[in-house]
Design a protein around this nucleic acid. Structure first.
Lengths: 137, 137
DNA sequence: CCGGATCCCTGTCGATACTG
DNA sequence: CAGTATCGACAGGGATCCGG
């Protein structure tokens, strides 16, 4: 399901020059396949405050469809990032919360978010300049 | 272009409880819209060693089509992350290199990649257990 | 050697409706 | 309230050809 990897995913005989960067890239590919989609990090962010019920999450995030929230939570649960607790009451109640594994992810994620905050203006500026250069010419 | 944001992008009156996490999530959304696609981080990784020509990049990355590499490089150039230098020789020669802005991104990115490396096994294990639980029952 | 344009297929997402 | 199934719309991405 990743970008491209051998069946093994371990032995990759490149030409000969470098090894570490390729490993980094594959690791990044793995990570992005897990959190790079549209809603995953939103869910993680929302759950970082503590456990939440399904509809609470949906309202908290906003814009996410019933279906996609379900799928996203399923995937997160499958990867061991979210703990799902169902109370067999009527009406049913299901709590979602981050696992320790997910909490360990928040640090690096926040670093990236910080980078986005810090350089948002630069990027928008670069875009504006680029667009102007290309459209006018 | 992002996931979902107000016209302003700044004033977002939530219920009342928290403010910072929402900002973080939006920032993350911005970042992921830029680097969350299939090839961007591969290109950044490949270019982190130094300037490279188009076909060298293509061979270095492997699996990327001519078209997608072009598009990815264009987007990176537009965002001010890649510097494109064309030599009007025959045959033409074009060098791509990361800008300082892109280099400042590598740190946080590497942190995330490191996280992926560190927890890959845990995740795969969680997956295996989840799949077994769901298929057998 | 490099970039753009076109065609087409596939996966992903949203809306809706239905079960427990 | 929580989850599932189905369907249709749409964009991402690969192959290929052509032009500088």
């Amino acid at each position: 399901m990743a970008t491209n990897e051998t069946t093994n995913g371990e032995t990759e005989l490149l030409h000969d020059d470098e090894v570490h960067p390729a490993a980094d890239c594959r690791a990044m590919g793995q990570v992005l396949d897990r959190i790079g989609d549209k809603w995953t990090i939103m869910v993680v962010g929302a759950l970082s405050h503590g456990p939440m019920r399904f509809n609470a999450l949906m309202r908290r995030i906003g814009g996410v469809s019933h279906r996609m929230l379900t799928l996203t939570l399923r995937r997160l649960e499958r990867d061991g990032l979210v703990k799902r607790t169902a109370f067999p009451t009527i009406p049913p109640r299901v709590d979602y919360e981050l696992t320790p594994l997910a909490h360990s992810l928040i640090g690096p994620l926040a670093a990236l978010a910080q980078w986005g905050e810090d350089h948002r203006v630069e990027i928008e500026q670069a875009r504006a300049e680029f667009d102007q250069r290309t459209t006018e010419k």
